[in-house]
Amino acid sequence: MKALSVEKMSIRFGSVTVLPEVSFEVAAGECFGLVGESGSGKSTVLRCASLLLSSWQGEVRIGGVPVREMPLMERCRTLQMVFQDPYGSLHPRHSIRSVLSEPLRIHGLDDREARMAQALEDVGLPPDFLDRYPHQLSGGQRQRVAIARALILEPAVLLLDEPTSALDVSVQAEILNLLARLREERSFTYLMVSHDLAVIDHMCDRFAVMQAGEIVEVLPRDAIPSNQADAPYARELIGASLTYERAL
């Protein structure tokens, strides 16, 4: 179990300041949500934390160690990311076996077959799926493979970038249950981006509301049903979500 802390993270793309200065803390084993409208910088926070973007200022620590100072191999074994669109995040010409075996090979891990079978079992897929290609899988199955790929190096922190927004409600339920079960079994720390407050309420202990690259408020999940937000934008967002759900 490792805690994650983001201190004064800021990034600009050209003349546009996408994140002026973002700081928050995620306790070890917590599920922390990031919500906000599109373009508010939620995904950028994850991309910076995972060093998919590197030109940012500030500090991200996992278990007290700054991610920038971790050697690449150690970083990959500490933090992994699951992307939004399972249709775009798996290589169409790589079988599931090559998707899952590549990280094992790079990290020189043994028992590859057993580890791959275990990873598939963890996400509830049968072992013979190893020889399939992404186009032979449904959206929910692909997202399970993407989660298996993130799990296979046994990281401590998972960054989830809208893991269910490309999926149907019925499939979303399966993936959310899977993520909740894995967190219980392995005490992962989750940092989860979503635009759906019902999903955040279901999964997260606390969440931050973002607007124009800044965190306007951090709230516990219990603040949602009665809309206890103080920041005007957070109130508006929660209010809109509540109206949307209860409009009748």
Binding site: Q172, N177, D196, A198, V199, D201, I224
Partner: peptide, 13 residues
């Protein structure tokens, strides 16, 4: 299967 605000956090059916 739809998660709800203020719902139980039990696994979704």
């Amino acid at each position: 299967a739809q998660p709800r605000i203020g719902g139980k956090r039990a696994p979704l059916p």
